[in-house]
Simulated assay, not measured.
Amino acid sequence: MLCASAALVAVSGWAYLAFVVTPRDVVTGSTQQQSAVDAATHAAVAILSYGSDTVDSDLEHANDLLTGAFAGYYGTFTRDVVIPAAKEKRIDTSATVVGKAITEFTEDRADVMVFLNQSTTTADSTEPITTSTTVRMEVERHGNAWLVSKFDPA
């Protein structure tokens, strides 16, 4: 009788973990992780892509995806350096994501590696210059949105 009770408790515990806890946690974690990765990749493209004629609005949109000290730094750097150079030298640049991976995840913070190709043209160039880069990004949850708090090119 004791063995049958122990077996019933073990099977019940296994069934609870397998069918109640695990699927919900895996789906929720997976969905949240995917949201963090999607936000990081979208922001990486926005941060690194702009047209010389639309640079003000392009980088304003990118700044809306940022938070904390990085948002302040990016706003100042783009206003003082990137925007004037883009307009003066007719710089157009476009980034595309070629790979992505999440390296750390909690409910409110994630580290994401984003692998990008970036194509840049200027008024002086006859062919686009293409570069590849890897960026380590930290995103933080603010309500339902993930915002970039760190952006470190490797």
Rank of each mutant, 00 (worst) to 15 (best):
M1E: 12
A4W: 13
S5L: 15
S5C: 15
A6Y: 04
L8V: 14
A10H: 09
V11E: 00
S12M: 08
S12T: 15
S12P: 04
A15H: 06
A15C: 03
Y16I: 08
A18F: 06
A18L: 07
F19H: 10
V20A: 10
T22R: 14
P23R: 09
P23C: 10
R24D: 14
R24S: 13
V26S: 04
V26A: 12
V27H: 07
V27K: 09
V27C: 01
S30Y: 11
T31Q: 07
Q32S: 00
Q32W: 00
Q34V: 04
S35L: 13
S35R: 13
D38A: 12
D38N: 12
A39I: 04
H42Y: 04
A43W: 04
A43G: 02
A43H: 02
A44W: 04
A46C: 06
A46Q: 02
L48A: 11
S49L: 09
Y50S: 06
G51C: 07
D53P: 03
T54E: 05
V55D: 02
D56N: 12
S57W: 09
S57F: 01
D58T: 11
N63T: 11
N63F: 02
L65R: 09
L66K: 08
T67S: 09
T67V: 12
A69Y: 03
A71K: 15
G72V: 06
G75E: 03
T76Q: 13
F77C: 08
T78H: 01
R79V: 07
R79C: 01
V82G: 02
V82D: 07
I83V: 08
P84Y: 08
A86T: 05
K87I: 04
K87N: 05
E88N: 08
K89V: 06
I91M: 03
T93N: 06
T93D: 03
T93C: 10
S94I: 04
A95N: 05
A95K: 03
V97T: 11
V97D: 00
V97C: 02
V98G: 04
V98E: 10
K100R: 15
A101T: 11
I102R: 12
T103P: 00
E104Y: 12
E104T: 13
F105M: 09
F105N: 04
T106F: 10
E107Q: 12
R109N: 14
R109T: 15
A110Y: 03
D111R: 14
V112S: 07
V112M: 00
F115D: 03
L116I: 15
L116H: 01
L116E: 04
L116W: 04
Q118A: 10
Q118S: 11
Q118W: 09
S119K: 10
T121W: 06
T121D: 07
T121M: 09
D124K: 14
T126K: 02
P128W: 06
T130S: 05
T131A: 09
T134S: 14
V135R: 07
R136D: 07
R136G: 10
R136E: 01
E138W: 07
E138H: 02
V139G: 01
E140S: 12
R141M: 07
R141Q: 06
H142N: 04
G143Y: 05
G143C: 05
N144E: 13
N144Q: 14
W146L: 06
V148N: 05
V148S: 03
F151N: 07
D152E: 12
D152V: 14
D152P: 03
A154I: 13
A154K: 04
